[in-house]
Structure formats: structure tokens, C-alpha cells
């Protein structure tokens, strides 16, 4: 456990918790402006969270501990990923947990906890959301695993920090076929996993078409605040991983204050730019019919598979 890792383990979660609602606010604002609306402002998600935190806690009748614990598990898993994965520093506070498989499993665990909570409510909407989310997850997780695995093959390590460092050492890798294929696959997967268009519409009010929102329909007050915060954090984490796996420049490799400051700035800029691009792209796409989504995901899985194949053949 290096000093750099410890600093990263403190700075990263603080940055992600504080910044992810702002990222969501920024994306909503970009979309509003592009659609000719005024928008609620970048800080609106934080105001919403403050409002929700002040409301009383509600337990829907007939739900169990699974329902109450799910928001905590969701936030906790994302928090652990924020601590260990290389966002600001290449070293990790908990090196064995910065493994590719561990990070994917942690993120999946959060989604599973929420799906179980959806089923626990016993309502048609909760079950419907859980079923849709798991259908998408069952197709997304393989792609995620395969795509990052493709990147790890050349490095000879499944440690995310090691993958990022090796790209820093050899920048030409970014434009290799393996990287490009994996990047496209990952982008598609991130869109699906974070419930963005064209897979899910984060701003819909129609219960019957929702995926993520249907699952969390019964949450209110502080519980809902946690779920909202966790969704925003997951979005930041995914975008941060995408940025650092393919464009790691700026990330702090030494524990000097200047390097850390550059690392923080680089992450904010990279994630911000990716978020703005995602939001701008969403203006021009409509939501796919539910059973077209698997076709999209199958496509991304194929790309990831090609990336792995390429990483073995084109060494």
C-alpha cells in the first residue's frame, strides 16, 4: 500500500461523491439547452438530494430488510469501486480489490441488490423493472468482462492500475485495433448499464416503459436520495473507467501535490467532456423498442469478443 494509493483512496471517493450529482446536472442542462429549454441548473440534483434527505423515511408495507438495505449496498459497492479503481492515482489503496473482475463484480452486486429490492416490493412495477434490468445486466456483464479482459491480455495483468500504467508507458496502444474495438463495446455497455438513451429513458414518467425507474418506484425520502446518488456515482465511475482505460493522461503517478491536482483536474475534465458528449448524443436518438436492446447488446458483445480475439492474435 503506497502513499499514492492512500491519497487516491481518500481523494477519489470524495471527488466522485461530490461531483457525480453535478455531472448529472450538467448533462441535464446540456440536454435542456439543446432542446431549447432553460433547464434547472447544474446544481439541481444536489438540491433534490438535500430535499429528499430532509423527508421522513418510509417503509412500504410488506417489504423486508432486503428493500431497506439495497440502497446502502448500492452506494457502498460504488464507493468501494471509487476508492480502489484508478481514477486520480494509478496506485490503489486496496490493490487486490482493484482487479478487473472484482470491480465488475462489485458493480453487478449493486445492481443485483436493487433488482432484489424491486422484487421485494411485490408490485407489478417493481418486478417488471427488476426483470428488465436483469435481462440487460445478463447481456451487459459478459461484454464488460470480455472488453476489459481484452485490454488486460497485453499487459499480462487483470489489475486495472497495471493496465492504466502500461498505456501511459506505451501511448501507441490506444490506437490499436484491440483498444478501439474494446472502447466501442464499452461505450455501448456503459450506455445500457447506466440506463441512458437509447436503452432507457432517465426522464420518463411512464411506469410501463421504465427500466431503472420502475425498480425504484417504491423508494422515498433518504432511501431514494441514496438510490439517486448511487446512480449518479455509477455513471461517473463508468465514465471515469472509460476515460482512464483509453485516455489515461493526466492521472497522478507520484504523490506530489501538483501531480494530484493535475490528476483531479484531468478526471473532472475527461468525465465532464464524456458526459456532455453523451448528453448531446441523447438529443438525437430515440428509445429503442425493448426487444431491440438485446440486438444492440449482442453487437457490443461481438465487438468485445473481436477485441479479445485480436489481443491474442495480434500480439
Amino acid at each position: 500500500m503506497s502513499a499514492l494509493g492512500v491519497v487516491g483512496g481518500v481523494v477519489q471517493p470524495v471527488l466522485i461523491v461530490a461531483g457525480s450529482p453535478l455531472l448529472v446536472g450538467l448533462m441535464r442542462q446540456v440536454r435542456a439547452r439543446l432542446e431549447g429549454r432553460a433547464g434547472a441548473g447544474v446544481a439541481q440534483p444536489w438540491r433534490d438530494l438535500r430535499k429528499l434527505m430532509r423527508k421522513e423515511q418510509i417503509t412500504p408495507r410488506g417489504t423486508s430488510e432486503v428493500f431497506r438495505l439495497a440502497p446502502l449496498v448500492l452506494v457502498a459497492t460504488t464507493l468501494v469501486v471509487a476508492v480502489v479503481a484508478p481514477f486520480v492515482t494509478t496506485d490503489s489503496a486496496l490493490d487486490p480489490a482493484a482487479d478487473l473482475f472484482a470491480v465488475v463484480a462489485l458493480l453487478a452486486l449493486g445492481a443485483v441488490a436493487l433488482a432484489l429490492a424491486g422484487l421485494d416490493t411485490g408490485t407489478a412495477f417493481g418486478g417488471m423493472g427488476a426483470s428488465r434490468e436483469m435481462t440487460i445486466l445478463a447481456l451487459v456483464e459478459p461484454t464488460l468482462l470480455v472488453a476489459i479482459f481484452a485490454l488486460s491480455v497485453r499487459v499480462g495483468s487483470t489489475n486495472l492500475g497495471a493496465i492504466v500504467s502500461s498505456t501511459l508507458d506505451d501511448p501507441a496502444r490506444v490506437i490499436s485495433p484491440v483498444s478501439l474495438l474494446a472502447a466501442v463495446a464499452l461505450i455501448l455497455v456503459i450506455i445500457a448499464e447506466t440506463g441512458r438513451l437509447p436503452v432507457d429513458n432517465p426522464s420518463t414518467h411512464l411506469e410501463l416503459t421504465m427500466v431503472h425507474e420502475a425498480m425504484v418506484l417504491e423508494y422515498a425520502g433518504p432511501d431514494l436520495a441514496l438510490v439517486e446518488l448511487a446512480s449518479a456515482m455509477r455513471l461517473s465511475v463508468f465514465l471515469g473507467l472509460l476515460a482512464n482505460l483509453f485516455l489515461p493522461w493526466g492521472i497522478a503517478a507520484t504523490a506530489t501535490p501538483v501531480a494530484l491536482l493535475v490528476g483531479i483536474l484531468a478526471l473532472v475534465v475527461k468525465v465532464g467532456v464524456l458526459g456532455v458528449l453523451l448528453a448531446a448524443g441523447e438529443v438525437f436518438v430515440a428509445k429503442l423498442r425493448l426487444f431491440r436492446v438485446p440486438e444492440l447488446l449482442a453487437g457490443s458483445f461481438l465487438l468485445a469478443l473481436l477485441a479479445v480475439a485480436a489481443s491474442f492474435f495480434l500480439v
Binding site: E35, G36, P198, N201, S203, V283, F284, V285, A286, K287
Partner: peptide, 16 residues
């Protein structure tokens, strides 16, 4: 109808 398929930019213009 555009809004229901999440193509909200056209809904914004229709509202205008």
C-alpha cells in the same frame, strides 16, 4: 408521440 419514444427535442418544438 415523439416524447413517448424519448425523442423529446421534437416534443419541445411541438410545444413551441
Amino acid at each position: 408521440l415523439c416524447n413517448d419514444v424519448a425523442y423529446s427535442v421534437l416534443n419541445a418544438h411541438s410545444q413551441r
